[in-house]
Nucleic acid binder design. Structure first.
Lengths: 337, 337
DNA sequence: ATAGTGGATGCAATCGGTTTCATTCTAAAG
DNA sequence: CTTTAGAATGAAACCGATTGCATCCACTAT
C-alpha cells in the first residue's frame, strides 16, 4: 500500500492531524515538530492523496472546461485551442489544473456538467461558448455554482461572462465593406443557436441601416462552423443572389466561402470581397490572405480564467463581465468598387 | 447540504451499502429493491459524489495528459490540438474525462505528473511527446503506473508507445528531394532533446548515405519548435551554405524557414525546395503550398488513447507499441533541378 | 496558592462513498 | 423436523485526508 498521512504521523511520533497541519503550514505547529514531520515525509516519500484531500476539504484546484458541440469538433477549429491556451496560462499561474469533459452532443454536454458539479470534481467551470437555448447557464446559476461563460448569454442576469462587443465588431466589418463601395453584402454565420451569431447578425443589420442600405433576407445564410458549412452556405446564396462582398463570422467558414465562390467562377477578391472573423493563424496565409476581425481569442481565455478564479477566491470583482477589444486586420481579401 | 447516499438509503428504507450496489447495478439486489432505490434517488435528485467514489474505489475514469514544454506553447502548435482531438474521441467513447496539467517547464512537468499519479487523480497518463533525457518515463515505469508515450522513447523497454516510423518518414522526405535531383539538402529540426528529432536526423543521414551523398554537419541546424525557431535555424544555415533543398521536421518551423529564405533573397521553391512534417491545416494554404509528410496526427491520438485504455482494462495487447503510417503529400514547395 | 491565558498537539467526527463479511430468511434436501 | 444452501440485505471497516473541540502544559497575574 501507499504511504499515507498515518505512516508519516507514526514515524514522526505525532497525530495525523498534526501532519495535516504541517502540510498546510499551519502556524500553530512549532518549528521543531514541523521539521520532524518534514523529515518523516521525506524519508517515506510521502505525497498527499489529492482525492482524499478534495473529499475532506471540498476543494479540487481544478477548473472544468466545457466545449460546445463535440469535443472532437471543437478541437478542429483553431479558436478553441487558442482560447484554451489563454486559460492554461492563467490556470498555471494560479495553480489550477484543467478538466476537460468529453461530450458528443448537447445532452451529453449537460450530463458532463452535472457530473463535474454534482460529482464535486471541479471548483468552477468555464463554458467555451453560449447558446441561445442553453439549459446549462440557468442550471448552473440556480445551483449557485461558480462559472464563467465565454460569449454573452442571452439572459445575462446573475452570470459572469467574457466576450467581445460582437455587435460592434460586426458593424465594424460591415462598415468596412460599405466604405469600400459595397452595397450587396451577404452575411454568413454559424448556427443561430449561438448567441454570437445573433449578435453579429444584428451588427450587420445595424451597419446596413445606418447607411441606408435595405436588409435582404436572401443575402443571409447560416450553417455549421466548418469549412464545409461555409461552402454550403455560400453555395446557397450564390444560387439566388450575386453579392459583391460577404461578411463571414468565422475564418474557417470563410475558407469554405472562398472555395464556393471560386467553384462558381467568381474571383476573390476581384468579384467578391470577403471579411472573416477570429484571425486564426491560417488566415494570414490563405489565398488570398484574409481580411478579418481579430477578436483576441487568447485574451478571451485569459480573462475568463481570471474572472473565474477571482470569483473562486472571493476577490472584489468590478463587473460581472469583461469586454475584450477587437481589431480589423486588413489583408487582401477585399477590394473597393 | 447535498443529497448523499445515506439520504437515499433512509428514504428507500435500505442500508447505504444497498444503495451503492444499486448504483453499480449489482445482480444480487432484487428487482423490487432496485426500483425502490431508483425512485428515491429520482425524488431526491441524488447524484453520486465522484470524488468520494474515487477515494473508495481507486478509480477515477480520468486520463491525464502531459504536454511537453509549457502548456501555453504546446497549444500554439496545431499538432497538439490535433492529437488531443484524437484522444478525446476515444476518451469519450470509453467514458473517460481528460485532466490537463498545466506546467511551464520540465521541472514543473515532473511535479505535475507526480501530483497526478501520487495524488491518485488519474487512472492512466498519456505523455504527448518523449524526450531523450526524460526522467518521467523511467519514473512512471518504476512506479508501475499505466501510461503511454506518443513518440518512441530512447529506452523503450517496458513502456508502451505510439509513433510513426520517424526514421523511415525522414528517409522518405529526403529521398523525395534526392530523386528530384537535389544533393545539397539541409536538415532543420526542433530541439535534439526530443527523440523524434534524433530519429528524423538519422533517417536523413541514411537517405544521404544510401545515395552516396556525403553528410555535411554544416547543413544541419536545430532550434525551438516555432516559426521563429525555423527562421533562426535557416538564417544560420544560409550564412554559411547554399542548400537547394531543406527537410524541416515541423510545418510550423517550415514557415519560418520559408520566410528566412525569402528574406535572404531566395525564391521558394525556385531556388530552395522545402519539405515539412505534420501536414497541419495551414500547410495546404501556405504560399507556396507546402509539400509535407503527413504523420496522421489524429490517429496518433486515437491509437495512444486506445492503447492506454486497453491497458487499463487489462485487455490482451498484441504489442507494446503501435506504428502509425505516414504519407508524403506533394504540393508546391519543391521543384526538380 | 489559585485562577487565567495562550501555545502546542491530540482525539474523534466527518467528507461520501465501496466492499468484506455476517446475518436473516426462505425453501429445498435429508 | 432438522439441516443446509443460497439469495437478499445490513453492519461496519475502510479509503486518506481535514477540522472543531478538548486537553495538557507552562507561565503570568492576582
Amino acid at each position: 500500500m501507499n504511504v499515507t498521512i498515518k505512516d508519516v504521523a507514526k514515524r514522526a511520533n505525532v497525530a495525523p492531524s498534526t501532519v495535516s497541519r504541517v502540510i498546510a503550514d499551519n502556524p500553530r505547529i512549532s518549528k521543531e515538530t514541523k521539521e520532524r514531520v518534514w523529515k518523516a515525509m521525506e524519508e517515506l516519500g510521502y505525497y498527499p492523496n489529492a482525492i482524499a484531500r478534495s473529499l475532506a476539504s471540498k476543494v479540487t484546484n481544478t477548473l472544468g472546461l466545457i466545449m460546445p458541440r463535440s469535443t472532437e469538433e471543437a478541437f478542429s477549429n483553431p479558436f478553441f485551442p487558442e482560447v484554451m491556451r489563454g486559460i492554461s496560462v492563467v490556470a498555471h499561474r494560479e495553480k489550477y489544473d484543467l478538466l476537460l469533459s468529453t461530450s458528443g452532443n448537447q445532452e451529453e454536454e449537460k450530463e458532463a456538467v452535472i457530473n463535474m458539479v454534482k460529482g464535486k470534481r471541479v471548483d468552477g467551470i468555464i463554458l467555451l461558448s453560449s447558446r441561445t437555448t442553453d439549459e446549462l447557464i440557468p442550471w448552473l446559476r440556480d445551483e449557485k455554482f461558480p462559472f464563467v461563460v465565454i460569449g454573452k448569454p442571452l439572459d445575462a442576469k446573475g452570470v459572469y461572462w467574457v466576450d467581445n462587443d460582437n455587435i460592434g465588431a460586426s458593424k465594424l466589418a460591415t462598415n468596412y465593406l460599405i466604405k469600400h463601395g459595397h452595397r450587396e453584402i451577404a452575411f454568413i454565420s454559424g448556427s443561430l443557436e449561438y448567441v454570437v451569431s445573433l449578435d453579429r447578425l444584428d451588427g450587420y443589420k445595424l451597419a446596413l441601416e445606418e447607411n441606408g442600405i435595405p436588409f435582404k433576407r436572401e443575402l443571409v445564410e447560416q450553417d455549421e462552423f466548418s469549412e464545409d458549412g461555409g461552402y454550403r452556405a455560400m453555395m446557397r446564396i450564390l444560387e439566388r443572389e450575386k453579392p459583391t462582398a460577404v461578411v463571414v463570422t468565422d475564418d474557417v467558414m470563410a475558407f469554405g466561402v472562398i472555395r464556393a465562390a471560386i467553384d462558381k467562377g467568381y474571383g476573390v477578391p476581384e468579384d467578391i470581397s470577403i471579411v472573416g472573423f477570429n484571425n486564426i493563424p491560417l488566415s494570414a496565409f490563405a489565398n488570398p490572405p484574409l481580411t478579418t476581425v481579430d477578436i483576441s481569442t487568447f485574451d478571451l481565455g485569459i480573462k475568463s480564467a481570471e474572472l473565474l478564479i477571482a470569483r473562486l477566491k472571493q476577490k472584489e470583482i468590478e463587473s460581472d463581465h469583461i469586454i475584450v477589444p477587437v481589431k480589423l486586420i486588413e489583408r487582401k481579401s477585399c477590394v473597393s468598387r
